[in-house]
Simulated assay, not measured.
Amino acid sequence: MTGVWSAAAASPIEGVTAMPYAEVNGQRLYYEDSGSGDPIIFSHGFLMDHTMFDAQVAALSGNWRCIRWDERGHGRTETSSAAFTYWDSAADLFGLLDHLGIERAVLAGMSQGGFLSLRATLTAPERVRALVLMDSQPGVEDPEKVAAYNQLLDGWTAVGMTDQLAEIVAAIIIGPGFADTPAWQQKWRDLDTTTVRQTYTTLVSRENDVTPRLAEITAPTLVVHGSNDASIELSIAQKYAAELPNAELVVVEGGGHSSNMTHADQVNPALEQFLGSLNS
């Protein structure tokens, strides 16, 4: 079993009621469960972990039961060495909900967390109360971007995470001007590159494009996307949001790929309004 940064410290969110592990599908999933009310489960992006939702949990845990977890190959989760897909990750999500005794929840996913949340919704729509997609997409990776990403990963494996490489990765995954970027860059420097390759393979070899199935997703959906996302262009979000039957799009002005972290002041009010509408 492997973890990416298993020694990482838990985030200091008030009211965390549990910080345990769940044995699910041959993995040992780390999760945090805080707040009270109807459940919402947060799924993070590639090279990130559950702490990227600190600002959302702080804002919502007074009215919502907030669950966030480290996906396969990330954070404190202990992951088998076998190859996996985002359909497997979707099954992990439902396994975690089963472990917690939750039948139905709001699924909120950022980037690859959105990939697995979309697949979870297509697998068991009756278990999804609503869907929040943050800087994500239903399609596959652009081949030109994959070629560039391959070069970055090869350099990382060969010489380690240099300062120059760390800046490039941060520009793609986070965006400019974020005060906590150095802390994330240090996490990346500490990663095991074998595990990174495992999760990267899942990312760039997504076996299908679920865009043709968007019409099946009738759950209320909030699409949140940074205007300056360098990883997934805003035009992609605009297109797929229009194809979802029951979706609204919120553009985060100035936001990069991790707009929920860097521009929480824009994301959180939109998220609170959307979640409030579910109870109206």
Results as ranks from 00 to 15, higher is better:
178 F>T: 07
149 Y>S: 08
3 G>D: 13
112 Q>V: 15
118 L>F: 13
87 W>D: 14
181 T>Q: 14
159 V>D: 15
250 V>L: 10
175 G>D: 09
264 A>P: 04
225 H>K: 08
12 P>G: 11
130 A>V: 02
268 N>C: 05
80 S>L: 14
252 V>Q: 04
90 A>T: 05
103 E>I: 01
111 S>L: 07
244 L>S: 06
107 L>Q: 01
186 Q>I: 07
219 A>H: 10
136 S>C: 04
4 V>F: 11
70 D>L: 05
208 N>R: 14
119 R>T: 00
137 Q>E: 10
274 F>E: 08
65 R>M: 00
186 Q>A: 15
271 L>A: 05
229 D>N: 12
190 D>S: 12
215 A>G: 15
177 G>N: 14
133 L>P: 05
237 A>N: 06
31 Y>W: 06
14 E>K: 05
42 F>T: 03
169 V>G: 04
243 E>N: 14
86 Y>V: 08
137 Q>D: 08
28 R>V: 03
266 Q>L: 14
192 D>F: 02
278 L>F: 01
237 A>V: 09
267 V>W: 03
64 W>C: 02
213 R>F: 12
209 D>I: 10
213 R>M: 12
135 D>K: 02
125 P>W: 15
163 D>M: 13
193 T>I: 14
259 S>K: 04
254 G>D: 11
37 G>S: 00
145 K>A: 11
90 A>L: 13
180 D>T: 08
167 E>H: 02
178 F>K: 07
209 D>C: 13
235 S>K: 12
148 A>P: 00
231 S>P: 01
17 T>D: 09
251 V>A: 00
184 W>G: 00
67 I>Y: 02
218 T>W: 00
11 S>W: 08
34 S>D: 05
256 G>A: 06
114 G>M: 04
212 P>E: 13
150 N>I: 00
244 L>Q: 03
152 L>D: 06
277 S>C: 11
51 T>A: 11
15 G>W: 03
148 A>V: 05
208 N>Q: 14
147 A>V: 07
135 D>P: 06
